[in-house]
Simulated assay, not measured.
Amino acid sequence: MKTKRKVFGITGIAMSAALILSACSTTAGDTSGAELTGAPNHAVKKVLFDYPFTALPVYSLVTKFAQKRADETGVKLELTNDNMDLGQQVTNLNTYLTSDVDAVVSFPADAASLESISKQYMNKGKYWVSYGGDLSNQDSSIKFSFYQSGKTLGEYAGKWANEHLGGKGEVLMIVDQTIQLGQERTKGLLDGFRATAPGMTIVAEQQGITPDQGLSVTNAVLAKHPKLNMVLAAAGDAAQGGYQALVTSGRPTNDASTFVGGLDGNEYELQQIKAGSFFRAAVTVDAEQVGNAIIDVPLALAKGQGAKASLDLPVTLLDSSSPKLDAFIDQLGGK
């Protein structure tokens, strides 16, 4: 099998908000939820969390909260080590298929490659929860308001452009068309921005999800559009690269006519927001809620709750005036 590599990260603020299983999306910025009722059904005693992008800092953050939730509910948490490799992900899942895990929560790096595996898990009576997207064969999924998160950033950036640029200027969109999560976020980002700031000119839509990709893409666009005003990214790490490219090009960090924003803020980006730089906004999800969901969703399925439904976690927009900004930074810094 040919190895495919993709990267994804999600971050957020530590909260005690409970989770809700629902077929409907939550609204951006709404961190309330309905608590799962009843005692845990110990038919689910062991949960496997299969997250292929283990090299990302967010992995340790999410698994920390998942382990804490597992300890609270008496569940044993198992982790795969896919090492950013689709082939290794498939191998690990096949190995665990015959183990005593009762449920798997898996982020499909390539959905088509995992469809038959998820079906085999379900045929063996194990719950399959897709993370960060959907499969045809699954009991439930954990998502993060994909479209709404993109739309929230797009609308915020569009309003800023109207206020500070008179609605006229040049924009680079760093998009992700590789997986469901990225595709829905990209659509929301474009829809929200175009509807809010129709006079702005999108000079390029380029694929990118890592800091290096964001840096490379932005440098290439700056060579043709040196007065580029805005960089918006469907993945926060790419936005970091866009910001660094602009700074390296000589753009003052407090430039009044420049805006960078992204989805999934990391600690570096949020620190730039706090410092008042032109990295102005990030839309992100609560990492503690994600960690809790890794345990709570399989337990809910074992109790007959939420079958065939999705948990769609809310997102929060952070800017320099956000009262939650410091808490997000503390969480990302491990405090």
Rank of each mutant, 00 (worst) to 15 (best):
Q67F: 02
G29S: 04
F65S: 04
Y147G: 00
K126S: 06
V58A: 14
R194H: 08
S99I: 11
F49K: 06
N94E: 15
L318V: 10
K335I: 09
G291R: 08
S113T: 10
A112W: 04
S113W: 07
G333L: 06
A55Y: 09
L299V: 02
L56M: 14
E72D: 12
P211G: 03
L181R: 02
D330G: 02
V203T: 15
A112E: 12
G12L: 04
E72Q: 11
E170D: 14
V7N: 09
I202R: 13
K324V: 01
Q271N: 07
A18V: 04
S145K: 07
T152I: 01
D176F: 07
D296W: 04
T91P: 00
M15L: 15
S118M: 08
L165D: 12
T201K: 14
T210D: 10
G188V: 01
P323V: 03
N137R: 01
D134R: 12
T253Y: 10
Y243T: 02
I179L: 14
E267C: 00
N254R: 07
A239D: 10
Q331I: 01
N41K: 09
G262P: 13
Q305N: 08
S321A: 12
D110F: 06
R69H: 06
T31C: 01
Q331F: 10
F65M: 03
G158Y: 14
A195D: 15
E184L: 11
V75D: 01
N137P: 03
A245G: 08
G304W: 04
N83R: 05
G74N: 08
D264Y: 12
N162I: 03
P323M: 05
G125C: 04
D102V: 00
V203H: 15
L301V: 05
S141A: 12
K76G: 01
Q240D: 13
G29I: 01
F144T: 00
D82V: 06
H164P: 02
P323A: 05
V285M: 10
G125H: 05
V290H: 03
G242T: 15
Q177H: 11
K151Q: 15
S25A: 14
G262Q: 08
Q89N: 07
L189H: 05
I329C: 02
A28M: 00
A293K: 00
S145A: 15
A293H: 01
L77P: 04
K119I: 00
D330T: 02
I202Q: 13
P40V: 00
V104H: 03
P57T: 11
A14F: 10
R194D: 04
K324P: 03
G9H: 14
Y243I: 07
Y268V: 08
L189Q: 09
F278D: 10
